Computed example of a mutant assay.
Amino acid sequence: MARRKKIYEGKAKILYEGPEPGTLVQYFKDDATAFNAEKHDVIEGKGVLNNRLSEFFMSGLNAIGVPTHFIKRINMREQLIRQVEIIPLEVVVRNTAAGSMSKRLGIEEGTPLPRPIVEFYYKDDGLGDPLVTEEHIIAFGWASQQDLDDMVALALRVNDFLSGVMMAVGIKLVDFKIEIGRIWDGDYMRLVVADEISPDSCRLWDIKTGAHLDKDVFRRDLGSLTDAYTEVAKRLGVLPTNVTHPTKPTLIN
C-alpha cells in the first residue's frame, strides 16, 4: 500500500490525502493536550475511543439532516471525511456555566444558563484562541453575516441533538465546541459541521454524581481519562458493557 500524503497535523489528529478528490482521511492520535498544549500526555486508546464516538455523533447528525464532513469510519483510528474549507472560528455552545465562562464572568460552575449561549473564538493557538464578537468576525472577513446566522442555527441544532442523546444516558451536556467548514459545489456553498465531536470537545457531567466525563479529567488531574471516555462510550452503546480493559477497547460495528 502506498504511503499517504500528510496534509496537516494538529494536537489530536492527522489529516491525510483521501482516496478520491475532495476527501481526506482523518487519523485520531492518543495525544491529550490542555491549556494550548502546555500540558501534554499520550494516553493509550484515547484516539480509538474518540474516533468511534465522533463517528457516532456525526452519523447521528447526518441522519437528522444536520450536514457534516463525515463519510464513514475506515478502521479503529481513521475515518473518511469530506475536504472542507475550515472557517477560522471555534463555535462554543454553553448550557451551564463552567470553565472559562465561570472565570471570565465570576459565575459559579454548575449554574444553569437561562438559554443556550453561543460564543465564537478565533482559532489561533499563539493568541490563546481569544473570544471574539460578531463585529470582529465580519470586520476581518472571517465569515459573513449570513454565515454567522447559519453557524448559530447549526450549532443550536447540534446542541439539541447532543443534549437529548446525553440526557437519555444520564449525562448532562454542559457545553461543547465545534468547527464549521465550507463545501463548494460549483458556485454554491454550504456549511457543514467539521473536525470532531467527542469528550475532547464537550464538557460532560454525570447527572446523578456530577462526575466529569470529559477532558477536564485530564486538565484538572481528576483520574483516568480513558476510564471517563470509556464510560461515555459504554452508555451510548458504542462499547459493550462488559469491557474489562478500557485502555484497549473492543469496538462494535
Results as ranks from 00 to 15, higher is better:
56 F>I: 11
69 H>E: 13
50 N>Y: 12
33 T>S: 12
53 L>Q: 07
48 V>T: 15
54 S>Y: 09
59 S>W: 09
36 N>A: 13
70 F>V: 02
79 Q>P: 01
75 N>V: 09
55 E>Q: 14
45 G>A: 09
62 N>G: 02
64 I>Q: 00
41 D>L: 13
58 M>T: 03
41 D>T: 10
50 N>W: 12
58 M>I: 07
80 L>H: 05
42 V>E: 14
60 G>N: 04
42 V>C: 05
43 I>R: 13
65 G>P: 01
46 K>T: 04
31 D>F: 15
47 G>Q: 08
48 V>W: 11
75 N>S: 07
81 I>K: 14
76 M>R: 14
37 A>E: 03
30 D>I: 13
36 N>L: 14
48 V>L: 11
42 V>D: 08
55 E>I: 13
70 F>T: 08
44 E>V: 15
50 N>T: 12
59 S>F: 11
41 D>A: 15
65 G>W: 05
78 E>Q: 15
32 A>F: 15
63 A>S: 03
30 D>S: 08
66 V>T: 07
53 L>V: 08
59 S>C: 11
54 S>D: 09
71 I>S: 01
60 G>P: 03
81 I>C: 07
78 E>R: 15
67 P>Y: 00
54 S>L: 10
78 E>I: 06
49 L>I: 12
56 F>S: 03
70 F>N: 07
74 I>A: 07
78 E>M: 10
76 M>C: 00
59 S>M: 12
43 I>M: 15
58 M>W: 02
30 D>T: 10
72 K>P: 00
41 D>V: 10
39 K>A: 01
33 T>Q: 03
37 A>N: 14
59 S>V: 13
34 A>S: 05
63 A>R: 01
63 A>Y: 04
71 I>P: 02
42 V>I: 15
47 G>C: 10
29 K>S: 09
58 M>F: 06
74 I>P: 07
82 R>V: 08
28 F>P: 01
59 S>I: 13
28 F>N: 02
